[in-house]
Design a protein around this nucleic acid. Structure first.
Lengths: 144, 144
DNA sequence: ATTAAACCCGACTAAAATGGTCGGATTTTG
DNA sequence: CAAAATCCGACCATTTTAGTCGGGTTTAAT
């Protein structure tokens, strides 16, 4: 079906929410999960991942929470998705190591898909959290 | 993980295989499944879907099989994927109907994602089977 | 006609990924 | 020390995907 996981969705929702709070305000996972009716534990773990990756900064202890660690324009969609769901690999045989089919010379799509994969990553990298927040205007993808 | 399903992969492999046979030769599902070690029944059903959609043409009966129904340049990646796996919907709330969150005014990413969705579909539509077959050169996605 | 080889198709099972829960640990504030 | 938050691994439930099975239809060759 080719669809983002719910966790990625939650992550994007949370980051967008944070971007729209007063700068440097500390935001708790529970605040977001309550507001959007997202299971608290799930929200918490997603934010832990984002924190480990350095997209947000954690403040432990009571009165703790999270703060955006970067400018919205510096956070790309691909970064968010990869942090939460792991690497984007359109087809299985993206690494030469983990692919039985290339070794046997069976798979006929490995090479072309590496190109597509690269373009797709560029596509996701080209969209920032700030873009998402600004409800970016309809744009056109042009091939050169 | 954001990855094509195996069925889509199989479909692309099969179509690429067909494109590289002598024009108008009739190709059996079993021929492809044997060659690439794909379960025969799965391969068969994928080709049935492609046939129903008009991407390939079926020839029933003994000595039957399939023939490409279109030029390679006329078959887009998005068409293949949507035929096999159903519509590409990056996030759940793509249709206003099926989305509880928009009704409640909770979801904050529905609108921006519609734009991303559209761009992504354009991206997939811009890649043809012929491109895949020609191991298309590294290209750049440019924003206007 | 009969048989064989292919397409056709829905229902089912198995396996994997995802979504969500639980219990408990650590850190900080008051 | 208690409360409120982050932290984290292990676990279970649900959904999606992958693959199987059994039976049907169409066509060509004998």
């Amino acid at each position: 079906m080719l669809r983002l996981t719910k966790k990625s969705e939650y992550g994007i929702i949370a980051l967008k929410y944070m971007l729209n709070q007063p700068p440097d305000s500390i935001i708790r996972a529970k605040e977001i999960s309550d507001f959007y009716h997202i299971p608290t534990e799930i929200m918490a773990k997603i934010m832990q991942k984002l924190a480990r990756k350095g997209i947000i900064k954690s403040c432990q202890g009571s009165k703790g929470g999270y703060v955006l660690a970067k400018d919205g324009a510096q956070i790309s969609l691909s970064e968010i998705i990869e942090t939460i769901d792991g690497p984007v690999k359109l087809v299985e045989c993206m690494d030469d190591d983990s692919c039985a089919c290339t070794q046997l010379n069976y798979c006929n799509i490995s090479d072309p898909f590496k190109v597509i994969q690269k373009q797709f990553t560029q596509f996701l990298s080209g969209i920032s959290l700030a873009d998402i927040n600004n409800e970016l205007e309809i744009q056109r993808v042009v091939w050169h």
